[in-house]
């Protein structure tokens, strides 16, 4: 059964089409990765699912019920973890969670129980009286999650929940996502960290220019790009490196430099490694390593959109 069903969804801002006739479904019990570069239409779609933006055309169904016609039902069953921290700094962790949970109709002892449960779940049970301004970035992110789950939604939308936090907090959050999923929540997860998406998502959709350009499991997506390969060349001195010259070499799709590693995506059938090496020697670049990568989501994304996810 599908938790979420999006059919022919379109959103226009004046003449600009942010989401263009999108079709998408999220199955019950899935952690669904929703990938797109900035401005691809990802946030607009999420905002329409959350009823924050009106739909120009098309429809969205949550658990088989239209979210416009049954807005209250939809809102009751969705939890949203926004990319930006959406908490009150001057209110305690408990007050934050309790306030938002109260808006979902929880009252009295049930409200207290669910508030404590949500805080315990994100590991802030012992900090319930503390003000968020005394929290680290990771703790604030966890509180941001607690505010979205106390009312036990069926679908949780997590928009970049791990931005700007330390690896320990990131691991905690990723484990929390898995645990929520095991508890029966379906999750829509967006991130700029491709390795996170690869690690936790069961299915992934890539959105570009307001349209879904690919959808499937990690393996299905990777199989799309069997016609490309990725070569990583470690370099020590890259001062004289001419990336444009590399891009002109036959078969090369994209070239980027990341922390002394040249990452080259090329057509698989063309053997152009010798030309690449020759160009680097010509540029007097000192090579430390050369390796061909197995295709990953990053490569898939780059190949399909022509852009890096962080662009």
């Amino acid at each position: 059964m599908n938790v979420l069903e999006i059919r022919n969804l379109t959103k226009k801002f004046g003449d600009f089409i942010a989401v263009d006739n999108m079709n998408l479904s999220v199955r019950e019990g899935e952690i669904f990765g929703f990938l797109g570069a900035n401005g691809a239409g990802k946030s607009t779609t999420i905002n329409m699912i959350s009823s924050l933006l009106r739909i120009t055309k098309g429809e969205i169904e949550l658990l088989g019920r239209n979210i416009v016609k049954e807005s209250k039902f939809a809102k009751m069953n969705i939890g949203i973890v926004p990319q930006d921290l959406a908490i009150y700094e001057e209110m305690s962790a408990y007050e934050n969670v309790s306030f938002f949970a109260g808006l979902y109709g929880l009252r009295g002892s049930l409200l207290k129980e669910r508030t404590v449960e949500a805080l315990d779940f994100v590991g802030l049970g012992d900090k319930h009286k503390a003000l968020p301004k005394s929290f680290s970035g990771g703790m604030k992110r966890r509180l941001n999650i607690a505010c979205a789950i106390a009312h036990r939604p069926k679908l949780i939308i997590m928009d970049e929940p791990t931005v700007g936090i330390d690896p320990q907090s990131r691991n905690y959050i990723l484990n929390s996502v898995r645990m929520l999923n095991r508890m029966g929540c379906s999750i829509i997860y967006t991130s700029h960290y491709m390795e996170e998406v690869e690690e936790i998502c069961t299915r992934i959709a890539i959105v570009d220019h307001g349209k879904i350009i690919a959808e499937g499991t990690k393996e299905q997506l990777k199989s799309i790009i069997t016609d490309t390969k990725e070569i990583w060349i470690g370099v020590k001195k890259e001062d004289a490196l001419d990336l444009e010259a590399l891009k002109r070499i036959s078969g090369i799709i994209s070239v980027r430099l990341e922390e002394q590693t040249i990452k080259i995506v090329s057509k698989a059938e063309i053997n152009n490694l010798n030309w690449i090496i020759q160009q680097l020697i010509k540029d007097q670049v000192e090579i430390s390593s050369v390796e061909e990568q197995a295709p990953n989501l990053e490569t898939v994304f780059l190949t399909l959109t022509g852009r890096n996810l962080r662009d």
Binding site: S50, S51, L52, S71, M76, I78, I80, A86, F100
Partner: peptide, 9 residues
């Protein structure tokens, strides 16, 4: 927090 408020029923 407006976003969270708007997303609530």
């Amino acid at each position: 927090t407006a976003l969270r408020l708007a997303a609530a029923p």
